[in-house]
């Protein structure tokens, strides 16, 4: 699992690569949250194009980041999920975050 960051104006673009499960999600959350605090941003785009597997831990991760971003008045979006991950997202209330 790896995560890369890029700032685009007021938006932090978070590109995740590898698998998101309970094992990897704790470290991912720490890395994303600390970067979000450090950067002068209020919005977040989570790019899932490099994610090869995601279970409900990924839903929890996105929902948690959605709360954080909302708390500072920002917006969160999801980009480029693979079809099997779209199936997962459809089951939760974060499906409408896909752009």
């Amino acid at each position: 699992m790896d995560v890369r960051f890029k700032r685009d104006g007021m938006t932090l673009v978070v590109s995740i690569e590898g698998e998101i499960d309970h094992h990897t999600s704790s470290l991912l959350k720490e890395k994303i949250d600390s970067r979000f605090i450090m950067e002068p941003v209020k919005n977040m785009i989570i790019d899932l194009s490099g994610v090869t597997f995601m279970d409900s831990a990924g839903i929890g991760l996105i929902m948690g980041r959605m709360k954080r971003v909302s708390s500072v008045g920002g917006k969160i979006s999801i980009r480029n999920p693979k079809p099997e991950i779209i199936k997962m997202l459809r089951m939760s209330n974060i499906y409408n975050l896909i752009i």
């Binding site: 999600s25 959350k29 279970d55 409900s56 831990a57 839903i59 929890g60 991760l61 929902m63 948690g64 997962m88 089951m91 939760s92």
Partner: peptide, 9 residues
């Protein structure tokens, strides 16, 4: 930050 979706999935 569990989604509560495990059994549903």
């Amino acid at each position: 930050e569990r989604s509560g979706m495990g059994f549903t999935i």
